[in-house]
Amino acid sequence: MLVVVCVKQVPDTTQVQIDPVTNTLIREGVPFIVNPYDTHAVEQALRFKDRFGCRVAAISMGPPNAEATLRKALAQGVDRAVLLSDRTFGGADTLATSKVLAAAIEKLAQEEEVGVVICGKQTIDGDTAQVGPGIATRLSFSQLTLVDRVDELDLSGKKIRVSRKLEGRHEHVEAPLPVLLTVVRELNRPRYPTVAMRLESADAQVEVWDNKVLQLDVNTIGLKGSPTWVSRIFSPERAKGEMLGDGVHDPEGAAQLLIDKMLEKDLLAL
């Protein structure tokens, strides 16, 4: 059985600033990182590999330099890395993205049965959390989002039991395979690549599939296949706070004022 894990290269959003004039992200000089949630997805895939000996393939859709993200997955121990890169894939929204990823998974499934697909719950640049469910829908896989614990993967019974982390509660669910999971950070602690694995991955082959390989209708993918358009990105105006008391000379008084203020606005539960 093959486990497919979807990863994405994202700009390090803590370092992204928004151009106040054009309201667009200033991407220059911003380093790229692996989407943090995806590192937990990779770890879960590798745990399945450790436990059941299944093979793991990492796929990513992105520009050629997204290869670095796949190399990182290789360093952690995935068996195969495929970069889906083609000009026609560019500018895709979540719908078009999920079509390309689903097509790649179907192609992988021609060689080896895909039992589990794992994605991070969302990416930190888009924050939509739609791609994972989109893939599941297109592949007609069971769909378990926000997984924070895998209780059991039963390969012979072809089912999986997990815990989902919802707001204020947990849900324990079971689903038949094949399944798509989206995972949260609490699921695991990603492994740190050993030096040997890092050196190994530096020379490992990252396959690149373009649309000649996937053969998708160009009108259904990329910018053309994306019904969502971003009209504007902006930082919300933040109301400026007020200075309370004199923290330097009268810290206790200032603290009291702050507490009163918080009580007044009902920010503290007593």
Binding site: T14, Q15, P31, I33, R189, Y192, T194, V195
Partner: peptide
């Protein structure tokens, strides 16, 4: 432990990632 076994106290994973990325 770090380079061959990749085994170290949990807190250090953040440190290593922060150092490498930022």
């Amino acid at each position: 432990l770090v380079e061959t076994e990749s085994r170290f106290p949990e807190e250090l994973l953040n440190l290593f990632e922060n150092m490498e990325q930022r």
